[in-house]
Computed example of a mutant assay.
Amino acid sequence: MSALPSRLTRAISLVGATIAIVALAACSSSPSGSTSSSSSQGLQTLTAGKLTIATGQPAYSPWVIDNKPENGQGFESAVAYAVAEKLGFAKKDVVWTRTTFDSAIAPGPKDFDLNIQQFSISDERKKAVDFSSPYYTTTQAIVTTKGSPAASVTTLDGLKKVKIGVATATTTYTLLKKEVGGNNIAVFNSNDDAVLALKTGQIDAVATDLPTAFYLADAQVDNGVVGGQFADNSGGDKFGIVLAKGSPLTAKVASAVDALRTSGELDTITKKWLSTTVNVPVFK
Rank of each mutant, 00 (worst) to 15 (best):
M1C: 09
S2A: 15
S2G: 12
S6Y: 12
R7H: 11
I21T: 06
C27R: 10
C27Y: 12
S28N: 08
S32C: 01
S34M: 12
T35W: 10
S36T: 07
S38F: 07
S40G: 00
T45S: 03
L46A: 00
T47I: 09
K50L: 05
L51T: 02
T52M: 04
P58S: 13
P62E: 11
I65Y: 14
K68G: 08
P69F: 11
P69V: 12
G72T: 10
Q73E: 14
F75D: 11
E76F: 09
S77M: 09
A78Q: 13
E85I: 04
K86F: 03
K86L: 08
L87D: 04
F89Y: 15
F89D: 08
K92R: 14
D93T: 06
V94E: 10
T97R: 08
R98P: 10
T100G: 15
F101M: 12
S103I: 13
A104W: 04
A106E: 14
A106H: 09
P107L: 09
P109N: 05
D111F: 10
F112G: 03
N115Y: 12
F119P: 08
S120I: 12
S120V: 15
S122G: 09
D123N: 13
K126F: 05
V129F: 10
V129T: 11
S132I: 06
Y135H: 09
Y136I: 08
T138R: 11
T145N: 01
G147R: 04
P149H: 06
S152P: 02
V153Q: 05
T154M: 05
L159K: 00
K161F: 04
K163Y: 01
A167V: 01
V180S: 00
V180P: 03
A186C: 02
A186T: 04
A186V: 07
N191K: 03
N191S: 11
D193E: 13
A194I: 00
A194W: 02
L196W: 02
L198G: 04
K199D: 10
T200F: 01
Q202E: 08
I203T: 00
A205Q: 03
V206W: 01
V206Y: 00
L210S: 09
P211R: 09
Q220V: 11
V221C: 05
N223M: 00
G224Q: 11
Q229F: 03
Q229R: 15
G240Y: 06
I241S: 05
L243P: 01
L243S: 05
P248N: 00
L249V: 05
A254M: 00
L260A: 07
L260F: 09
G264V: 07
E265R: 13
K272F: 05
W273N: 11
W273Y: 14
L274K: 10
S275G: 14
T276W: 07
N279K: 15
V280K: 10
V280F: 07
V280Y: 09
F283L: 04
F283G: 02
